[in-house]
Design a protein around this nucleic acid. Structure first.
Lengths: 154, 154
DNA sequence: CATATCGGTTGCAAATTGAAACCACAAGAG
DNA sequence: CTCTTGTGGTTTCAATTTGCAACCGATATG
């Protein structure tokens, strides 16, 4: 489960998260959690995966601090899985994934679900990357730079 | 390779993309592609994965229309892998992943690379979801709604 | 007591992954 | 021409992961 980048022990800001959510099911579980699902059985019914897989994924997400187990909300003697702060932080990523999926994985005119703002009942705006001064940025307008070196070490 | 959601044949806007980029390596390859890498050997050196895996991933990304193979740019008789339009569309997702990773996978003060706007040399703004009228939206302010039904069928 | 439901764990077979070896082709080197 | 080197893979095979199905334990329910 704990994979490692082979040739470099310190993983970058893109690689580290993939250790936590880099598999097929985890993001779908998290999406369902955003949709309000909380119980083991709810996830299983919604996703249709094997119970051992779901069990392993939930455990992984909990140990990574993305989900938390809380005792119960209705009388039942079981536990529920809820998003932590860290898990909630995945919302933009999920929206980005959804928007990309809608852009490129649906035929034009093919119906699909839409993410709407509950207040206005309008679809949400497209995610867009902007500079500090508000200019919209394309990929070519950006570059990743190394952190300022504090010691002598690279 | 072509996994299917078990109990429902039509996959939603979140699930469909995961068939294309839902594994550990693909997103890292795409990130490297955004960083300008194009050659098989460059990807392999950068990521340190086995050549058969890289070969399979690149093939998968090409068949999904995320990468394209172009003959050569310098004289060498080989081919290069470049992002298609569809692949470029993944940039916001990659940024979202990076920002989430920087938020939650680095100790406070721990140095990490930063995505900066090349024009101003400033870090890019945080991705944020907004309504049509510009209000910022949290996850709780949104809901996914089914498409309008055109026929009688669900 | 019998039965069902929820939330798992345990086998076990099948698919996937990945390290290492091998292969094909082109360009130099001697 | 032969030998070697670099690039871009494919093949082989062992180890890991996945996932179906069966089982399990605790708690209601009839």
């Amino acid at each position: 489960m704990a994979k490692r980048i082979s040739h470099k022990d310190s993983m970058c800001g893109v690689a580290r998260p993939l250790d936590a959510i880099g598999d097929w099911w985890s993001l779908l579980i998290i999406r369902d959690a955003f949709d309000g699902l909380r119980r083991f059985g709810e996830f299983q019914k919604s996703l249709g995966l094997a119970k051992n897989i779901l069990s392993a994924r939930l455990r992984n997400l909990v140990t990574h601090g993305i989900l938390d187990t809380v005792p119960a909300s209705d009388g039942s003697p079981y536990q529920e899985y809820v998003l932590t702060q860290k898990g909630q932080g995945l919302f933009p990523l999920l929206v980005a994934l959804r928007q990309w999926g809608e852009d490129f994985f649906f035929a034009p005119g093919e119906p699909h679900v839409t993410l709407v703002d509950t207040k206005s009942n309008q679809p949400v705006r497209r995610l867009e990357l902007r500079a500090q001064d508000g200019r919209m940025l394309m990929a070519e307008d950006t570059i990743v730079v190394a952190p300022p070196l504090v010691d002598g070490r690279e």
